[in-house]
Design a protein around this nucleic acid. Sequence first.
DNA 1: CACTTATTGATAATCGTTCTCATATTGTGA
DNA 2: TCACAATATGAGAACGATTATCAATAAGTG
Lengths: 142, 142
Amino acid sequence: MLAEVEKIENFLKQRQIKLTEERKLIIDEMLASQRHFGPEELWEHLRQKGKRVSRATVYRTLELLIEGGLVKKVCLGEHCFRYEHILGRKNHSHMVCLKCGALIEFLDEAIDERQKLLSQQQGFEVLSRCFQIFGYCKNCTQ
Amino acid sequence: MLAEVEKIENFLKQRQIKLTEERKLIIDEMLASQRHFGPEELWEHLRQKGKRVSRATVYRTLELLIEGGLVKKVCLGEHCFRYEHILGRKNHSHMVCLKCGALIEFLDEAIDERQKLLSQQQGFEVLSRCFQIFGYCKNCTQ
DNA sequence: CACTTATTGATAATCGTTCTCATATTGTGA
DNA sequence: TCACAATATGAGAACGATTATCAATAAGTG
Ligand SMILES: [Mn+2]
Ligand SMILES: [Mn+2]
Ligand SMILES: [Zn+2]
Ligand SMILES: [Zn+2]
């Protein structure tokens, strides 16, 4: 956790970005709370702790952290986006339960390699990937 | 194309769904135009041909066709959704060029199998998948 | 043809996200 | 330490794609 905060602060310093109170609050909350979260959710958590920041600042900060490669935005269906920090985590994908909302993370060497091969064949330079599987989780099919 | 129209009309008849002028227009336009399209785009094309339907009807009809498994909605980044008809087409994924917007379709047995295996391991019942690769196409990296 | 039921159009509402801009804070270098 | 330029913030307006509303209209059955 300390290493993570440090990595983030280094990123901010490298560019002409100021480490404000609000950004600290948002980053701390992100690292402390559950893995996948929405901006509104994070904002509400802070608010409940008496830490009031603007919704706009939450969005702006998350965007900043994405630019720095510290946070990833995941599309979980129609109009549902979640964020998660990816400090020290391997690139992974998600299975999304359409009933209970459960998220199952997965990663697979074989898929990664096939995917790499396919894009090379097309002369396609990969920047990011987005792979979701929608359906019902174990609990919800029983 | 005829077979496709027929398949769609069969789907409509099977349920208590009426084959209205507007729905015919939308389906014809979809089959006649390019593969991936947005609702607004389809609406505009019809309008330019003097065929006026409500935007709402375009959305409603596409939704209907998705239910019938005749159309698929593809998420191409943040707030960009496209539709495509999947009549007689294998399930495929897309590489999306972030510069020129090009779409490269791909499908791969190996990935499908790994994915199937992974979801089985989790006891996860798959309903749909969504796999996109973002980056730069051949033309845009040169 | 008549009648029931589904569908349409126009536009208001929604909702997550971004924009605006006056005010406040940060970090620098004197 | 202090002053100052550069950045960042908050509050709420604006946005834009999609969905909801509901009175008027059309489809299809028999
Ligand atoms: Mn995850
Ligand atoms: Mn396609
Ligand atoms: Zn579930
Ligand atoms: Zn391109």
